[in-house]
Design a binder for these strands. Structure first.
Lengths: 226, 226
DNA sequence: TCCAACATGTAACCGGTTACATGATTCA
DNA sequence: TGAATCATGTAACCGGTTACATGTTGGA
């Protein structure tokens, strides 16, 4: 649902075509919100039918016609309302954590390799983001939106902070895993006694009745143990 | 695609029904991977048709019949392969960042309110996660998987670290925003000169040709400016 | 000559959520 | 009496990605 508002946000700067919006997306918000043309075009159409934007065909002789979208007063109002409302927390899904969760099935070296690989990726993306900062600043100045540069920079900051937090977590995890015995890995539960699902579900039931508040809130986002 | 492997992971501990898997999900991986029954049931069916699990109907007199799923050797092999392969980086989408990106449209107080609200949510989820740790440890012990507790704890840790990183970023953002002049906010671009989309797209073109490497990699995850 | 850029779209698919359907038992 | 638990599912929808379709112009 947020794509709608991201588009309104850019249209609030000035009229754009779908094609232009995609380009602007790619250098400005792509690090936390990607969008494909095939999604942008129909979304613009919806915005139009809701009366939040207006479209004017710009007939061109030598190139394909352009559909230029302009935000309406209704659109401005709706954008502002959304911006001021509390942000929904997007659900966080991280495949790496599934691997760590079931890591005792792996060998110690395999787990460490997986962790190192992800850390490398994250380090690379931090480097990219650091370049991204200066690009965003140049861009903001070039188009006369210097005052936006601070806000844009904050979003890049957020990305860097998250990546760094992940890297630090991975480094800590590797240290802990390295301290472990090789024997703790490579378990195949078929060989040991398999877990009895009924027992574990019963156990959950008991834990739940002891601390119901914890289970009630668990759906929010992430927190951790030391 | 990861749901499949998360299910295989639990089935590797021992046979479970779909209903049981949902319960186990909710207390163990829900903080980074939610799953609904309506998704679990068909996924189990697919796993069966792929030969990665086997199903046996457990006829019950007083209650509805249960379908108990057991992992096969093929399933174990596929799980192990996936666990050892590099993790795909899930795309990160954060509505709050869209709000910050377009924050100059808001008033200063509105922006700060939005930021504070999210920080509060995050603080609450950190508290929940801290409880979650002890629950996970109790659970692991109760079902005889003590050695798993460390890995499970690491995933909770990751959640805490992320939330804390977000909180710190928000606190920094609030400090920066508080230093700003009220006049920097509440811009309505219609009143000033709207941005010319063609100029901004041209500018992007030039920035791109100057630093093509940055744009090539930009799709990874997040990094930031100081 | 061939590819990239310009410019707009549709269709199929995919992972996931919400809502709905069924029907027994147990507990407050 | 009515809600919660047990237990399985289907259907509709939603946001998003990938692939496909079309056709021109300009540059390597």
């Amino acid at each position: 649902m947020s794509l709608k508002y991201a588009l309104l946000g850019f249209l609030n700067y000035g009229p754009h075509t779908g094609y232009e919006l995609k380009k602007v997306f790619d250098v400005s918000v792509a690090h936390f919100w990607n969008a494909e043309l095939s999604q942008i075009y129909p979304t613009l159409k919806n915005l139009e039918s809701e009366g939040l934007v207006e479209m004017k065909v710009d007939v061109q002789a030598d190139r394909p016609n352009r559909k230029v979208y302009t935000i309406t007063e209704d659109g401005r109002r709706e954008l502002l309302e959304w911006l001021a409302a509390p942000a929904e927390a997007e659900q966080f899904r991280e495949p790496l954590l599934i691997k760590v969760f079931f890591a005792s099935t792996l060998s110690k070296q395999e787990l460490i390799a997986v962790l190192r690989h992800r850390a490398e990726e994250l380090r690379r993306s931090v480097a990219v983001f650091e370049h991204g900062c200066s690009i965003i600043e140049n861009f903001a100045e070039a188009i006369g939106l210097q005052r936006e540069a601070l806000f844009w920079g904050l979003t890049v900051d957020s990305g860097i902070k998250h990546s760094q937090a992940s890297i630090e977590w991975i480094e800590g995890a590797i240290r802990r895993v390295e301290e472990m015995d090789d024997a703790e890995f490579g378990t195949r539960y078929a060989e040991t006694a398999p877990v009895d699902a009924r027992v574990s579900v019963d156990t959950l039931q008991k834990l739940k009745s002891k601390a119901p508040n914890v289970f009630a809130l668990a759906h929010n986002t992430g927190a951790s143990c030391e």
